[in-house]
Structures are given as C-alpha cells and as structure tokens.
Design a protein around this nucleic acid. Structure first.
Lengths: 244, 244
DNA sequence: TAAGGTCGAATCGTATCCAATTTAATGCCG
DNA sequence: CGGCATTAAATTGGATACGATTCGACCTTA
C-alpha cells in the first residue's frame, strides 16, 4: 500500500493551485513514470492494481487510462488491458516531422512579438536544461528539454497548434525513452542556447532554420534503425532479463 | 425504455462491416447531429437521456462523451454535464490557421507521389461535393466538403498529421455550422475542382497556394465578427428565445 | 415587489457488483 | 516428450446503486 508514493501528498512540487482531481494525479504520475523510463513501453497497466495503489475504484483509473490513450501514451486493447504505448519507428519519424512543421510555424508568429519577459522565461528554461545536463540525470534532461519546447510553444498565439504540440512533446519523450542510444544525450542543450540567441535577435527565418536543424539532430541521435527495436522478440528477452 | 428509437436499427446506412461498438455508434451519431446542425452549440447532452435512447447504461454514454470531448466537439463541465462545444471566434481562426499549415504541408509530400487511382478517388469526392451543392442541402455540403479534405489527407504519408487534421476537419464542421452566413455556401466546390486540377499537374507549390487560398476563402465566408456571436449576453437571450 | 434563502428534483461522480472474455495452468492423448 | 483440449483464475466491460453537487422553484421577508 504505502510502500510507494502516497497519492494524497502527491508530488509536493505541484501545489494544487487549481482543483487537482484524483484522476489527473494518476494520469500525470503515469505519464511521468513513462517519461522517466520507470515504466518501459509494453508495461501492463492493470486497472485493479492501479486502483489499489491510489485507493480509488477502477472507474477513476479507467478515466485516467482513457485520457492517456487519447494522448497516445498508452495503448488500450479491447478486453486485453492497457499497456504503455510502443511507438513504431515510422510513428517516431512522423512525430518529429510534425514537430518540425508546427514548431517552425509557431516561431513565425511568436518571435517578432516576443517581450523581454518572455525572453527571460526562455533563459530560465535553458538554464534548467543546462543544469539537468550537468547533473547527468537522463530523466531530468528529457524533462527539461520538453519543458523548453513547451514554454516556447506557450508563447504562440495559436492555442490549437499549442495543444497539438503538447501532445507531440509527450510522445517525443516516450520515443526518446524508447529509442535513445546510450551514448547520446536527449537533446543537446547547446542547441537550445543557440536557438534562444537567434530568437532574441528577432530573426524569424534563422530561428526556423535553427529549430528544424535542432529537431533533425534530435531525431538523428536516436536509434531509429529496424534492428533490435522492430523485433519484439529481443524486447521480450530484455524485459525478462530486467525482471520486469 | 423502448418507447423511443431502437438503437440497433438506427443508422441503417452504416452496416456494421467492422466491429462497431455501441459507444462508437453513439459518438458518431452525436458528431453527425452536430455537423448537421440538428444539435446546435450549447445543447445539453444528458447522460441518462442518451442512455435511455440507446438502451445502454450511462457508463458507455460517458465513454462516448469523453471521446467527443477529446475531439473538442463537446464541452465537459465538471458536475454540470456535457454540452456541444461553442468554439469562440479566436478558436475558429486558429483552427483555420492550423489547417492551412498542415494541409499545405501535407501536399508537399502527397502531390508528387500520387497515383492515378488516388486521382480517381479525389475526382469521385469532388463529384460528390458537386452533387451535394446541387442538392442545396447544407448538411450534405458540409459533409462532402469535409470528406474531400479528409480523403486528400488520407493520401499523406504522415498518419500523425492526418490524425490532427481529422480532428480539425470535425471542428471546422462545427465552426461552419455555428458561424456560417446564411448567404454563402460552406466551401465553394469550385475551389475543390480547381485544386484537384493543380494536383493532377503535380504542381506542388501551386497546389499549396490553392489550398491556402481556398481555406482563406472558407474562413472569410464565415461571419467571424464579434457581433452577436462573441457576446454571451445576446447568445443567452437568443437561447431563451429559442426555448432551447 | 424584488431580493435572498431554503428546499426539492434532477444530474453527475464514484464505488460496487455481475457477466463476458482472456490468460494461464493442468491434464490427456498421440 | 510434445501438442492440444479442458478448466480455473484473473482481468476487463458494462450495469446498477448511492452519495454529492447543481439547478430551479417556491417561499419568506424587508
């Protein structure tokens, strides 16, 4: 029961400024666990087990799982339960392509109209990113990198695209957790620093180029070859070795 | 209980070729009703009432409503029930902007690699669009126009963007149903015809220009001025007059 | 008469219960 | 000894029940 995190005293870094419902807590906890690689792709998410952990009924767990499924973070198989999603290589490529499209387009509107305060926010996010890199904590790195892109997106005037991008960033975190090569970092924080410099110069075209290049680099740093990952057999053997 | 329509024999134009779950039927029925303006924005969607109509429990109705909410077609207000969404003018503009971005980008990949079969499919869709226009049936027009864009999107290689666009097309149908000026048609099918011609010439840049212009025209044909619609007071008075 | 409060009906949120399906295990047979 | 059918446990899908919240009507009162 209480040998894990206590759901009432949830993250403690997330003060419930607004009404935080229980299913949102579960949803966020699972998402964080996925991003932190504590829940590798394919992990089964039993409704009863989760309900037991959070001391709620399966009804609310189902709601959380349903929402995670709509965010493409878990896969809901009829009559067979929920597992954390295993994005394919093709899907990963498409996610990056979509991100290049959306994020570069957002810059077109946000870069010229950016205030000094917003520049400061981005500086803080880059600083957090650098700190994460220095800590050599892969989870923090993934998180910080996503936060930078999210913060940049929040400065766009288009909430619709922002919502799409939010989903894409979450999927990217899962993709990185799944396909990262053990040698490379998630996103080179240096790229974020460079990008911010160009943004501050109000150079739209340059920022767009930098963004596209950055995302291309991120994609190239992943192991998106069909060996290993495309083979479910190796995965299962890995899982059994890891005593999942 | 069974004093209303029988849910088993409801669509009759939708034979359950594939496994059609009940909640999907409800979801699609509600979506169609929204697009056909049989359910104006703001209409309350009572769980018990819907469950009665389809002879299912509230559980499955909730699932359908939840999914409609994730597609931004209904608004789920805590403890206050679900209503069909009332997209704001700003949201409408953002949806069109997002569509311009995504649809023109999709053309970049799909136009050069299009087969003759796919051209044929598009021809059929344009024909259906023209037929809908000739029938002077506004609902059919909205539907056919959306089907053309959907069919075009299906020819893209990027399923992720395709999913986003699917959602945007649905939201557009709702926006058109809400903001259309009574004088103008939904989308001029002539534009679809022109667009198809340019596509068949494998002119990517031209197709992108035509697509952006077409979507701009659609947006301009709507009444996205802040009179009437932006004012919630007038809306409420309208609603009470309409005895909604 | 209008403003405010109280009560009741309706509706939503969640827990619990039961049926249906899947999954794993055991035993049987070739 | 390996493959397959039968059976039992576990898990999901859906229905029902009950507490909580909201909305509307009626009543009271200044």
């Amino acid at each position: 029961m209480s040998d894990h995190v206590t759901p009432q005293t949830l993250p403690s870094d997330k003060p419930n400024t607004m009404q935080s419902t229980v299913d949102d807590v579960i949803r966020r906890d699972i998402a964080d666990a996925i991003f932190d690689q504590r829940m590798p792709p394919g992990t089964k998410l039993s409704e009863a087990r989760l309900g037991d952990l959070y001391d709620v009924s399966r009804t609310v767990v189902r709601k959380a799982l349903f929402r995670l499924a709509s965010d493409k973070l878990v896969d809901l198989r009829p009559n067979r339960g929920a597992i954390v999603a295993r994005p394919t290589i093709a899907e990963a490529r498409q996610v990056f392509e979509a991100r290049r499209l959306i994020e570069s387009a957002m810059l077109e509107h946000s870069v010229p109209n950016m205030t000094a305060d917003q520049h400061g926010v981005l500086h803080d996010l880059v600083a957090a990113d650098s700190a994460a890199h220095d800590s050599h904590d892969r989870q923090r790195m993934i998180r910080a990198s996503g936060d930078f892109h999210r913060g940049l997106a929040a400065m766009s005037s288009n909430q619709v695209l922002c919502g799409f991008l939010d989903q894409l960033i979450g999927r990217t975190s899962l993709i990185i957790a799944m396909y990262q090569s053990h040698t490379s970092a998630a996103c080179s924080h240096h790229a974020h620093d460079e990008l911010l410099k160009v943004i501050e110069q109000a150079d739209v075209a340059g920022a767009q180029r930098a963004m596209r290049r950055h995302l291309h680099e991120c994609e190239d740093q992943l192991q998106l070859t069909d060996t290993q990952h495309a083979n479910p057999l190796a995965q299962m053997l890995d899982a059994s070795h890891g005593r999942n």
